[in-house]
């Protein structure tokens, strides 16, 4: 009897282990191993061959194994202003876009969270609805809207506000519009989740204690919805930094972003080692702030 319960327990534990293992194995095979391959290539040297990089490990005649790490790629990234500027420009665009998404998304999320249950469902559906259309198609649609002969310029000329079309397409502005438009749902949804959990009597309590609406927002609402703010910001910031399609289609050749550099190094230049080094540095740029945040959060929840 006892052993039967034990074996049942064991099989339950096995199931649990299995269910947890599946996604981890998936991530291991399709994420971690490829990442190490990229890391490996970043320490290699560009050669005219297929594949176009030198081997990292080499077996000598004596049977010993040699590993050749070439740091040239990283040094090159540092020495060539193009890469540094592109990284900085990417970060600037992604940070600005994240802030813009937050400013636009917070009121929307707040409104949805405070709507009646029926309205809430419809509004949430409207936030998710754009995903039904292909992302690429939606970015192309923005070209039609923002072009010199596009809908917006034509309309403004027609009502007589302007005589000459405003240049919007192939500017930073177009890239911001594209990124904010595309990533807004990723900001709204986590914000909505944390605002909806907020107990409204806390606002009344704050008001009752003499706090004006804006102070209440600053001292009660924002701190209590911080998890949503951080989650939403990370969900926008991380993909926006490495974004390729939007700067390529809406920014043209005028907006330098690291995703585009990566693309051209890999495809046009066929310089896989440099492209890999660009990718590794990008990853470090994105992972470090996340790790700092996680450490801060762990400290917050365990201490005081």
């Amino acid at each position: 009897m006892r052993s039967r319960i034990q074996s049942k327990l064991q099989s339950a534990e096995l199931w649990q282990a299995f269910i947890i293992a599946v996604p981890y194995i998936w991530l291991l095979i399709f994420f971690l191993i490829p990442f190490f391959i990229v890391l490996k290539i970043s320490f290699a040297e560009y050669i005219l061959a297929s594949p176009p990089f030198s081997k990292l490990f080499r077996l000598a005649d004596t049977g010993a194994m040699y590993m050749t790490l070439i740091f040239d790629n990283f040094v090159y990234l540092w020495e060539d202003d193009l890469y540094l500027n592109t990284y900085l420009n990417s970060l600037q665009i992604s940070i600005t876009s994240t802030i813009l998404c937050l400013l636009v998304g917070y009121p929307i999320a707040y409104g949805i969270a405070r709507a009646t249950p029926t309205a809430k469902k419809i509004l949430l559906l409207m936030v998710i609805l754009p995903f039904w259309t292909s992302f690429l198609l939606r970015v192309y649609a923005w070209i039609g809207l923002l072009a010199d002969q596009g809908t917006i310029n034509n309309f403004l000329i027609w009502i007589g506000i302007i005589d000459e079309p405003i240049k919007m397409l192939y500017t930073d502005f177009a890239v911001y519009v594209g990124i904010v438009y595309t990533y807004l749902p990723f900001m709204i949804l986590p914000l909505f989740a944390s605002i909806e959990k907020l107990d409204m009597t806390l606002h009344e309590a704050a008001a009752d204690l003499g706090s004006r609406p804006f102070t209440t927002f600053r001292t009660i609402t924002i701190p209590l919805t911080m998890p949503g703010i951080i989650a939403g910001s990370l969900l926008v910031f991380i993909p926006a930094t490495g974004e390729f399609v939007i700067p390529d289609l809406l920014g043209g050749g005028n907006v330098l972003m690291i995703g585009k550099v990566l693309y051209s190094e890999f495809n046009s230049n066929q310089d896989w080692p440099i492209a890999s080094a660009v990718a590794v540095v990008l990853l470090i740029l994105l992972v470090v702030p996340m790790m700092i945040y996680q450490k801060y959060q762990a400290k917050e929840s365990s201490g005081e």
Partner: peptide
């Protein structure tokens, strides 16, 4: 007169303590 300017204070049924403050 808005709540934040009234000379009254309220103790809420749920207490409504601010969870992020000591």
């Amino acid at each position: 007169v808005p709540p934040y300017q009234r000379p009254v204070n309220m103790m809420f049924q749920s207490y409504a303590l601010f969870p992020h403050m000591t």
